Amino acid sequence: MDVLSDVITVARTGRARSAYVRWHAPWGQQFAAVPGSAGFQVILEGSCWLRPPHGAPLRLETGDVLFLPHGSGHTLADHPARVVTTPACTPEDPELPESYTSDRVDGLGQAGPVTAVLCGAYQLDPSRTHPLLLTLPDRIHLPADPSRHPELNAAVQLLAPEVDNPRLGVGATVPALLDTLLMYILRIWLGEQPIHGSAAGWATALKDPAMSAALHAIHQDPAASWTVAKLAAEAGLSRSAFARRFSELIGQPPLGYLTWWRMTTAARLLRATEAPLRSIAAEVGYTSEFAFANAFKRTHRVPPGAYRRAS
């Protein structure tokens, strides 16, 4: 697994929930904030306006992708000044299901122009949220542009007929395409970030050969007996230069990030598997189950056994 794949795998719980919605103008729909989730809107047909809680309205065209990594509330409407009187759309159950679910909804309005949108959401585990995700803005808008984002456009083109006209196998194809869409969104956004800004640290680190090599080594084998010197050798830098640059970009020292990643991996294994504690301890680099339990409790505030039972 590479770093970006790991970031998504450990934070997400269950699989995506989605809905294919067609609105006939005039229409407007509020989407309530859903903390602990990441949502997206893909404009499959027509156009609409995004009205965020703060700031100017934004026009969305066919093929545009809107990603809301922190589950922010917002409104979509056929006109930027549309008065919305309908209740906010809120998931019936805040816990997204383990299996893929989808709905098809004919929305509000009469006989005006049609806007079709694929709405979706992922449930995230706040205790396992990777710091990279915390650097993301409240919304990421990727306009439809095959020349700049051919892979994103291709994913949208594949998704559209699957959700518009579900057929045999849709329960397998759509989740895979949604995962692909999410990966493309993050890859494109990180790749387009300047070297300065709130997300510059992680964006720069993943594009920097030295930092990327060290991060890949940690994620590929968290159980290895890593030291700052060994990670510096992976990065091809001196120990002091590596430690300084890693801390500047990642926001914590190399061994601090290593411990955090080990405990995050352990938390996922405790919830997703029935492996005994000694096996999980060994998988994240601890030869002593007692030492592992102490380290886990320092990070998650509860012993690993209690964490597993609570899940």
Rank of each mutant, 00 (worst) to 15 (best):
W202R: 13
W27H: 02
A56K: 03
A232F: 06
V284W: 07
E45W: 04
L158Q: 14
H216P: 05
W27R: 05
V21N: 02
G305E: 15
A11E: 13
Y20P: 03
A306V: 12
A38I: 08
A272N: 10
M211D: 13
L142I: 10
R239H: 05
V42P: 02
N153V: 15
R139E: 01
P53D: 06
L96R: 03
A272G: 04
A223R: 14
A235M: 02
E162V: 10
H196S: 13
P97D: 00
Q123R: 11
S47K: 02
A232I: 07
I218V: 15
V284R: 06
L270D: 01
N165I: 10
E98S: 10
T90M: 01
G107V: 07
C119N: 12
V114M: 03
W189V: 08
A224K: 10
F246M: 05
P69S: 06
P126E: 12
I280Q: 09
S198W: 10
G236C: 06
R139M: 01
G285E: 08
C89K: 08
A213Q: 13
G36M: 02
F67Y: 14
S279F: 05
V65Y: 00
D93I: 07
V105L: 09
G112V: 05
A210F: 07
V84R: 04
P143G: 11
G39E: 13
D64G: 01
Q157P: 06
S102I: 14
D179T: 15
D208T: 15
L269Q: 10
V10F: 11
M263H: 02
P57L: 04
A176Q: 12
V117Y: 06
H130N: 07
T13D: 11
L258F: 04
S72W: 02
E192D: 14
A205Q: 07
R139F: 02
E274L: 14
P137L: 04
E162S: 13
I218G: 03
G201K: 12
L50F: 00
F242C: 00
R51M: 04
D78I: 09
A160F: 10
H24F: 12
P194K: 12
Y257F: 12
P80R: 09
P53N: 04
K297E: 15
S127V: 14
P209M: 13
L249Y: 07
P143Q: 09
L60A: 09
P26G: 08
P57W: 05
R82S: 07
T180K: 13
Q30Y: 05
Y20E: 09
Q110I: 03
H74N: 01
L118M: 11
T173A: 15
L66Q: 00
D106I: 12
L4F: 08
A203L: 13
P304L: 11
V105K: 05
E61I: 00
A217R: 06
P166I: 12
S212H: 13
R139G: 01
A176I: 08
Y286T: 03
T287W: 11
A200M: 11
A116N: 08
I140M: 03
E151T: 15
E95K: 01
P80E: 06
